[in-house]
């Protein structure tokens, strides 16, 4: 791990339990790390959330996405577009970036690169759908 990655890890591990995926999406997921979901889901909660809102895999743990969804709406001081990005379809993880500094990859734009066959988002996300 390089110097920047080490600094990033020291800061983000205690606060968000950062898993160093190298392509951070915290700001789009209510400042809740989706890589701490046992299924590492980046696009919302699975259908196995328990009636008490806890995780299918770890019954003692609050579902990461139940937390994320709540925080994306209610966390203070978050820019409006961070809240709006919650519904975006996030692309598959690039496993080559694991252990890298996401700060470095954000500056270089490396974390935005998607596989050539990945269809770009053609429509606005469905933020207007409310139950």
């Amino acid at each position: 791990m390089g110097l920047i990655a080490t600094i990033e890890h020291v800061i983000k591990k205690p606060i968000w339990d950062c898993q160093m995926c190298g392509q951070c999406v915290l700001h789009d997921t209510g400042m809740t790390c989706p890589m701490t979901c046992p299924k590492t889901l980046r696009n919302g909660p699975c259908g196995g959330v328990r009636e008490d809102g806890n995780c299918e895999v770890k019954p003692e743990m609050r579902c990461v996405w139940v937390k994320a969804e709540d925080r994306s709406r209610n966390l203070p001081l978050m820019p409006a577009d961070w809240r709006e990005h919650f519904n975006n379809l996030r692309p598959p993880v690039d496993n080559r970036l694991k252990g890298d500094s996401s700060w470095k990859n954000a500056i270089s734009g490396r974390d935005k690169e998607t596989p050539p066959g990945w269809t770009p988002e053609t429509e606005a996300p469905a933020a207007e759908v409310e139950a």
Binding site: P45, V49, E51, C63, E69, V129, E130, A131
Partner: peptide
């Protein structure tokens, strides 16, 4: 299941 308001 939860989050209920988010499922749709």
């Amino acid at each position: 299941t939860h989050p209920l308001d988010y499922r749709a």
